[in-house]
Amino acid sequence: MKNLTAFWNILLKDMRTYYLKPPNISWGIIFPLAWTAMFFIKSGAGRESLCDVLPGVVALSVLFGTTSLLSVTVTFEKRNRSFERLLLAPVPLNVLLLAKTGGAILFGAINAAVPLLMAVVITDLPDMSWGVVAATVLLIAVSSTFMGLFIAVSVSEVFEAQTFSNFFRFPMVFLCGLFFPVARLPALLKPVAYLLPLTYGADALHAEIRGAGTIPVWASLAALALFCAALFAVSLHQVKRKWIA
């Protein structure tokens, strides 16, 4: 019960002080709009092709929403030493890290909901399982957030968190199958694509929204879940090694 109180209050504080600030809310709306517009301008297609761009916009909204904020907020708290306050509390480290990442996961999921809601209003979405889409979005949000956590633990300055995030994000955006199908990537890059969590998230969204997946959805979700577990375990280990050294 005490851990739950601590968990809830850490989550609530982060939502209030970081994620629900007006600039972040407007960014959460503008980001998917900008990406959608960019895809339309590039393809010259009409609104009937919205479903083609939707998986990409959803995945990118989650990826950028979660990694940008989490890596920066945790690094900021580590820098001004308020993270120490959390480490000094009798809250198990895994509960603490789940609470810290909870806000970013929710923020990422809400970011994904924006383009999905827009798509519902603008066009007729094909018959799809909303449960699977929600599970995919959640798993992309969790894996991206844990990647943000890994980045935060690996750097010491806020600006480093941003640059190091891009080191992971941009290759992932280009190799995960959102812009080019993984099958069309050069032979050398194909194995790399399958080492990225977003590849599985993007494929599951393509499968559900466009019926154009290349991997069974259950396999993509399982792969995402594995990435989540591995990234969390690595981050937990790194926090113990570097921050409680």
Partner: peptide, 22 residues
């Protein structure tokens, strides 16, 4: 090492919550 964006009172309450206080 308290939170710069919270007030003194909010910081106190937050620290209490970390110890499971209702």
């Amino acid at each position: 090492n308290l939170y710069p964006e919270l007030t003194g009172f909010e910081n106190l309450c937050f620290c209490g919550a970390l110890y499971g206080m209702r």
